[in-house]
């Protein structure tokens, strides 16, 4: 019984720099070794990590979709754990291979694809959104609280208030134990 699995692999940039095709085939080779057929495999992103892993601050993500027998997953995971180039992996069941993944994989394996240059390890800083298109960046630039001349956003003095919510909620949570205390007393009375 085979299922479709989505696999995301975080691989060492040093390997990718040395040999991108080889790194990709290392990952797909592992999937095939465990009885899988790789439907799509592509470079998802290259970005700064949210926290350093084995001393690395940047890494390349490979996104794959493959058909794998369900009972081979454990062995595959064990194999991934002892593979040095793979810093992190995530294997999930998927209903089907998204059509756009097949297209993107085809685009990447065509001759015109050029691997973008990888920045050095200490370059750039982490933020959840990286490598955005310039259009997106423009959209985000007006998203702040200051008095820009963007008409779309109404004045929002209340935003700051809601940021303080957790503090004002704190006394409530300290009330809760008090409410519990009488109960505990009454139980003692019963006993």
């Amino acid at each position: 019984m085979t299922n479709t699995y989505e696999g995301m692999f975080l691989v060492d940039n040093d390997l990718v720099r040395a040999d991108w095709a080889g790194t990709k085939s290392m990952v797909t080779g592992l999937l095939e070794k465990h009885g899988g057929t790789v439907r799509s495999a592509r470079r998802w992103d290259e970005r700064a990590l949210a926290y350093p892993i084995r001393g690395r601050r940047r890494g390349t993500y490979i996104l794959t979709y493959s058909e794998l027998p369900g009972d081979s997953i454990e062995a595959l995971k064990r194999d991934l754990e002892i593979t040095d180039g793979v810093l992190r992996y995530l294997i999930l069941r998927a209903e089907e291979v998204p059509a756009e993944e097949l297209e993107l994989t085809a685009a990447e394996s065509s001759a015109e694809f050029e691997m973008p240059e990888i920045p050095s390890d200490d370059e750039g800083y982490y933020s959840p959104l990286q490598n955005l298109d310039e259009d997106d960046m423009e959209d985000d630039s007006d998203d702040d609280d200051d008095d820009d001349d963007d008409v779309s956003s109404p004045p929002r003095p209340r935003v700051r208030r809601t940021e303080e919510l957790p503090k004002s909620a704190a006394p409530k949570s300290s009330d809760a134990p008090k409410a519990d205390a009488p109960k505990a007393d009454s139980e003692e009375v019963k006993s």
């Binding site: 926290y51 810093l87 992190r88 982490y126 959840p128």
Partner: peptide
């Protein structure tokens, strides 16, 4: 939690 595991989001 998946994104955190893959270092896409911070803990």
């Amino acid at each position: 939690k998946r994104a955190r595991h893959m270092a896409l989001l911070p803990f």
